[in-house]
Write a protein that binds this DNA or RNA. Structure first.
Length: 470
RNA sequence: GGCGGCGUACCCAAGUGGUUAAGGGAGAGGUCUGCAAAACCUCGAUGCAGCGGUUCGAAUCCGCUCGCCGCCUCCA
């Protein structure tokens, strides 16, 4: 069995066959940089981060492109509201995005192109559409004519007539059809604009992705991804533009992730129910967030809550505790190869449209089994199994840091939040140690209770007393 | 109105025709321990929103009902 991917185009899982053997080219629609990324963005970012990592794990040479939309109505709005240039706003949030991205432990895409750096390509593409009679100008604007593209609606399974009937927004009267969309917008005072055959202006939203994906990946390329809300109209329009221009499919596989919800409603700016990535990362470990996302399938809707994240964090702690235990008791051995059975199991699950919940289950089964081996002091094959576990963890983007570092940071975060000094804790532990060696159990237990009161749990191990936070 | 999705144990969540319905969190009992903690072991849905139907066999297919959500407008 090989990799199967659910393709929005067909609505079914299909065997994945790349255009070019051994290579995968994928494009994922990124963010519009007018505000901080929120946790809903984190879902699509992590979804495709894992897709990217897994394809590499399978041995493909992957070219991964994720763009920034850095010219757009909302950026302009925001810039004007703050009396700043729109480039300043875009720059600010691109920088923030890089920080969040690092915080989330995302692997860097091959290219992260910006719309404003591809104006010539965009103009060339629009000209081509004009020449082919798929676009028309009205004053300084250029629109795409959906009537001239027969496949319009094939991705979102919509029919143009029905869209017109259900149109709820006021239509620009200058358009031939209500569903026609802007490829180029005439420049206005106080907006960024570029010279073009149609006068000064700026690109419409959808055209940048067509121009950039084709530039970096060619056409057709393998995988095009994004959040489910981009299916219509964004991706539908990309298809119309690119396929209209070149008479070739744009992408073979279209992948869309489900939404993150809060209190059963989609997270969105307009509802005001969003949590910025940076704030969530202040409260929770990135690994907890990742576990939480991976524990459900990428296409399912998922409800966000701090409690769920808390629980996911506990699971990850168990994993890291075990890894820590293994690091301390299994000597590193460069000669070992990762245990193939475990890797095969992982592949079997992931090949089924990236079934990360199953893959996670595999990890936890393995964690239990390894702990048991340590408990029973059995060591045969332990090294290869640990190695395989690390490979899998890395492929899912989990286990990106050493267990020691993870556990230490978690402790420090907690301590800092409560203004407790580690020195004081250490001192109490020493005091208890003395009481214990004198078999003064009452005193020892009193100290334990005192620390427990503060949320600190003691763990007596052969190597001494360890402490951990709740 | 059109299109699509969801409803599985206390909570989260896999599984979409066939041995015992994954896994995580919480809970109960146990092993270990001076006592704990951690780890491990055991237990936990005779049932998968409800009702019918197809089938030798259904959580899984079909129909209806109830409840929830998304897209159709900027949105990951």
């Amino acid at each position: 069995m090989s990799l199967q991917i659910h393709n929005t185009l067909s609505g079914k899982k299909e065997p994945f066959v790349p255009v070019k053997e051994g290579e995968v080219r994928m494009y994922v629609c990124g963010v519009t940089v007018y505000d901080s990324s929120h946790i809903g963005h984190a879902r699509f970012l992590l979804t495709f981060d894992v897709v990217y990592r897994y394809l590499k794990f399978l041995g493909y040479q992957v070219t991964f492109v994720r763009n920034f939309t850095d010219v757009d109505d909302k950026i302009i709005q925001r810039a004007n509201a703050q009396g700043l240039a729109s480039e300043v706003i875009a720059e600010r949030y691109i920088r923030e995005f890089a920080e969040d991205s690092a915080g989330l432990g995302l692997a860097s895409p091959t290219h992260e192109p910006r719309a404003t750096a591809h104006i010539p390509e965009i103009i060339a593409l629009i000209r081509r559409l004009e020449e082919k009679g798929l676009a028309y100008r009205v004053e300084g604007d250029v629109f795409f004519s959906v009537d001239r593209f027969p496949g319009y609606g094939k991705l979102s399974k919509k029919r143009i007539e029905e869209l017109e009937a259900g149109a709820r927004v006021e239509v620009d009267e200058r358009k031939k059809k209500p569903m026609d969309f802007a490829l180029w917008k005439a420049g206005k005072q106080g907006e960024p604009s570029w010279e073009s055959p149609w006068g000064r202006g700026r690109p419409g939203w959808h055209i940048e992705c067509s121009a950039m994906s084709t530039k970096y990946l060619g056409q057709p390329f393998d995988i095009h991804g994004g959040g489910g809300d981009l299916v219509f109209p964004h991706h539908e329009n990309e298809i119309a533009q690119s396929e209209g221009a070149f008479d070739l499919p744009l992408a073979r596989y279209w992948m869309h992730n489900g939404f993150l919800r809060k209190d059963r409603e989609k997270m969105s700016k307009s509802l005001g129910n969003i949590d910025p990535v940076r704030e969530v990362l202040r409260r929770h470990e990135a690994a907890a967030l990742r576990h939480y996302f991976l524990a459900s399938h990428y296409r399912s809707p998922l409800d966000f809550s701090d409690q769920a994240l808390e629980e996911a964090g506990k699971g990850m702690e168990r994993v890291y505790e075990t890894m820590d235990r293994l690091d301390r008791s299994v000597p590193a051995n460069g000669e070992l190869a990762p245990e193939p059975r475990l890797l095969e199991g992982f592949r079997r699950e992931m090949d089924d449209d990236f079934n990360t919940p199953r893959a996670l289950a595999l990890i936890f089964d393995e964690i239990r089994s390894l702990n048991r081996m340590l408990d029973e002091d059995k060591r045969e094959g332990l090294g290869s199994r640990v190695l395989a576990l690390k490979v899998i963890g890395e492929t899912l983007g989990l286990l990106q840091e050493s267990p020691g570092a993870f556990l230490q940071r978690k402790k420090e975060r907690w301590i800092r939040g409560r203004g407790i000094s580690p020195d004081v804790v250490e001192e109490l532990i020493n005091k208890r140690e003395r009481a214990r060696s004198a078999k003064q159990w009452q005193e020892a237990d009193r100290i334990r209770a005192e620390l427990q009161e503060k949320g600190i749990t003691l763990e007596d191990t052969p190597g001494g007393t360890l402490w951990k936070v709740r």
